[in-house]
Each structure stands twice: as C-alpha cells, then as structure tokens.
Amino acid sequence: MTGGPPRASDAATSGAPLARRNPVAKLAAALVLSVVLLATLDPVAPAVAIAVEFAVIPLFGLRYRTVLRRMLPLLLSAAGVLITLVIFAAARTGTVLLAAGPLLVTTGVLVTALGLALRLLAVALPGVLVFATTDPTDLADALIQNVKAPPRFAIGALAAFRLAPMLAAEWRLMAMARRARGVDAGRDPVRRLQLFASTGFGLLVLAIRRGTRLATAMDARGFDSDTPRSSARRQRFGPADAGLVVGAAGVGGLSLAVGVAAGVLHPLIG
C-alpha cells in the first residue's frame, strides 16, 4: 500500500485546497450533503446546494468545462426524469400552465419534477467532485487507516476503481471488432438495441472472468490473511478535513433553511 499526502487525479490541480483534503473527509462530506438533500422534495433546497457546489469547483482545482463533461450523463438523466414526470405524472395539482391535448402541465407537476431532477444533480455532483480529485490508492489507504475498513474490502474497491476505465476501453474494442466483421445495426433501432444487449453481456462475462482472476491473485498475495498490515504512507485526518465535513453539513442546513424561508419546503416524511 502507498499513502502520504492525498494526490488529486490528473483532472484536477493537486495544490487546490479542497483537492488536498483527506479522501475519507471528501466522501463523508458528499454523504452528509446527500443525506440532508434527500430529506425534502422541493426544488429550492437542491437548487441552493447546486449553486454552492458550482461555486466551490475552483477550490477543487477543476475547470467548469471538465465538470460539465463528466456530468453529461447526469444532465441527460435529470432531463429524462423531468420530461417523464411532466408527461406521465398521475396527480395534476395546482394551476394549469399548458394544456395541449392529452398533455396537461400544472404547477404541482412541474414543482415535483423539478425537485426530483435538481435533487438528482445536487446529490450526484459532490460524487463527481470527489472522484475527480481523489487518487484511488489514497482512497484505499484512507479507508484502511481512518475508517478501519478491512484491507480486503479496501484493496478490492481500489482494484474495481482501477478496472473501470479498462471496461470502457473493452467496450470500445468489442464494438470496433464487430464493425470490422461487418456486424452493424445501421439505422435500425431494434438492431441497435440487440447489439447493445449482446455487447453488454459479453462485457459482463469478461468482467466476471477478470474479477475472478484478480480475486485469486489477491488471495495468493495474502490479502485474505488476518495478519495486521502496515501502511507505507500515512493518511492524516486533520482539522481542515473535519471542517470540510462540517461545511458540507452547513451547506445542507442552509439549503433547507432557504426552502423554509421560501415556504416551499416539502419534507420527505410528514
């Protein structure tokens, strides 16, 4: 195991103040903020949280263009949630905003859809910032040293983290190999779906085989042993790291407070 001062990933500036924080502190901060935001269904609280999260992106040493590119799947998912709920929502409460045949958009439906879409982004964005600025090896070290996680679990998580880009590369190689053999869906959407499913199944089989070999190799190197392990480099959890967690809780509290002040807070329970 390696350790030492947290190293940010290549996507971030390693000297940025929040990028240098302990990986466990960054994970805890993201978790705390997510739990707070899941307590309400209104759109105001997640909107406030998103505004604060975007404001601190430079403190993580990231560029807004980089974050938006990494968030593209999340943005598409949020748009899908918004459109689906607006079209298919069962309860149509509030003032009618748009009535076009079977499509009926009301203020109640729009507020609910916006709340879910914005909460998806507000909960996911901290995770994007954490993993874009955290070295996987440092994360495994911090889990073992600061959280006392079992080494087998931490090293397994590290291995899975390292293998994720390899799976993406394997997907591209499988798609290129099929095109080279003349297997192409063209513009047929059904054929595209079939090829996507078959490629996904092939990738799943490949991932299981690689995971089995990796687990065997880890056991052979003593990762399944109960013998206490030492760390070459330390991951320290200092006052600044604790301050990050407290700050995340403060952002969550501020978001709820703004929702209360605006009179739109909609608790998940109650």
Rank of each mutant, 00 (worst) to 15 (best):
R210D: 06
T137G: 14
A157Q: 00
P126S: 04
T112M: 10
P136K: 01
M166D: 13
L203M: 07
R181L: 09
G182A: 06
A142L: 08
A113W: 07
R191S: 14
F201V: 15
R213N: 14
G182S: 07
A185H: 03
F153H: 05
L204G: 04
A180G: 12
P102T: 01
A132I: 10
S198W: 15
F201C: 10
P150V: 07
V123T: 14
P151C: 10
R162T: 00
R213F: 10
A113D: 03
G115R: 11
P126E: 02
F153P: 04
F131V: 12
T134Y: 01
V147G: 10
T107F: 04
R162Y: 00
A122E: 03
A169N: 07
D138H: 07
P189Y: 01
F131T: 13
I155H: 11
A159I: 11
R210V: 11
D188N: 12
L203T: 04
R191M: 15
L158P: 00
G186W: 12
R181G: 01
F201E: 15
T107D: 01
D135M: 01
R191E: 15
A159R: 01
S198P: 07
K148Q: 15
G186S: 04
G115V: 05
V190L: 11
L163C: 09
A207M: 10
A160Y: 00
P165Y: 00
P136H: 04
G115Y: 02
F153Y: 07
R179C: 05
L120V: 13
L173E: 13
A117M: 04
G202E: 08
T199S: 14
T212A: 15
F131I: 14
R162S: 00
T107M: 06
V130C: 06
